[in-house]
């Protein structure tokens, strides 16, 4: 299935297959392990260098997995599924350490606070926050619609997106701290590393963003599709967005991005389905419905060049850079897990 004839910076590493659509994955144990969850509810731990299976947990979520989030320390991860449960598992053996049962419903989103002390889970119209051992600390009231995305502002506040609104909750009390309202169905959410910029992709094929420090908001129109994928670089100056075949990169340094032309990265032949900036520098990886993965090197303004590309054949569901950025993993719709070594020119 996977085509290992990668070009440029993407050099063949290893590949593997999980049981179903590979929904989510991330590196654990400082890059020694790659954890991948599939739609059938199974989770696999692959040795980071060889791809050998270290452990596998079949049917961790009986009716299917919906989300996975790696703890910032990389030693444990959380999973959530259609069974209304959240598991916190150890990365070394995949064993479930704690389980949170939220009742009947789909738990669709998970996010750890930056200090790793809190885990947020979204089910239907509510968000539930627990500590690292799965003890529920607080839960929100009903949002106006199903919560569509989660993001932490450091360890202090939790942001949620839903139809018409981004809400900020105090991490410890769960008190509603701020509401950013805008009439539209917000399908994705990301905060800049300093927490000031809030960006959301909207169902009406636009990206809306706010600056919390000034209260200003703007909207970027003209996407051919809905921008479901967003990624900030670690400096917070570049925001890459999907929403079509082109990766559109907005530059927040200086007075932009209002009134500026974004960087446009064109190579995919079908819409973008995954985007991930590397941990350092201005490299970004994009994946598409076309089954292609492209690594790009960007200039400070947001334009850039492809430094490597590979074709794995199926819709790319997720991308993850190893903590040292020396490897890139892609997870695809047919259950393929593909890892490339990043060749430094």
């Amino acid at each position: 299935m996977s085509d290992q004839t990668a070009r440029g910076a993407l050099r063949p590493g290893w590949s593997a297959i999980v049981d179903d659509y590979a929904i989510a994955g991330d590196w654990a144990l400082n890059g020694a392990l790659l954890v991948v969850g599939d739609a059938a509810g199974s989770v696999f731990g692959f040795e980071g260098t060889s791809g050998t299976i270290r452990w596998q947990k079949r049917a961790l979520h009986s009716s299917g997995l919906l989300a996975m989030a790696m703890h910032p320390d990389g030693d444990r991860f959380a999973t959530a599924g259609q069974d209304g449960q959240v598991h916190i598992c150890g990365a070394d053996d995949g064993a479930v350490r704690h389980t949170i049962d939220l009742g009947r419903g789909w738990v669709e989103h998970l996010a750890w606070s930056s200090d790793g002390n809190q885990l947020a889970a979204a089910m239907s119209r509510r968000v539930y926050v627990s500590d690292a051992s799965g003890t529920l600390l607080w839960q929100s009231d009903d949002h106006p619609s199903t919560v569509s995305a989660l993001a932490w502002s450091g360890a202090e506040q939790l942001a949620t997106a839903c139809y018409g609104r981004v809400s900020f909750f105090e991490a410890t009390s769960g008190e509603l701290a701020q509401k950013l309202e805008w009439k539209g169905s917000l399908v994705s959410l990301i905060l800049s590393p300093d927490g000031d910029i809030v960006a959301c992709g909207s169902q009406d094929n636009s990206v809306h963003f706010w600056r919390r420090s000034t209260g200003e908001d703007s909207m970027m129109h003209g996407y051919p599709g809905k921008p479901s994928n967003l990624s900030f670089d670690q400096s917070g100056s570049l925001l890459a967005t999907g929403g079509g075949k082109t990766v559109t990169v907005w530059n927040f340094a200086g007075s932009g991005p209002e009134g500026t032309r974004p960087g446009e990265l064109e190579m995919h032949v079908q819409p973008i389905t995954a985007l991930s900036f590397a941990h350092q520098g201005r490299r970004i990886a994009s994946g598409g419905r076309d089954g292609g993965v492209v690594a790009w090197s960007l200039q400070s303004g947001g334009n850039g060049v492809a430094i490597g590309a590979a074709f794995v054949g199926e819709l790319i569901g997720g991308l993850a850079w190893r903590p040292d950025d020396r490897c890139l993993a892609a997870f695809d719709a047919s259950g393929g897990v593909t890892v490339w070594r990043i060749h430094r020119q």
Partner: peptide
Amino acid sequence: DEEIFEMSN
């Protein structure tokens, strides 16, 4: 639950 999303336009 039926969630009807109108657009900003």
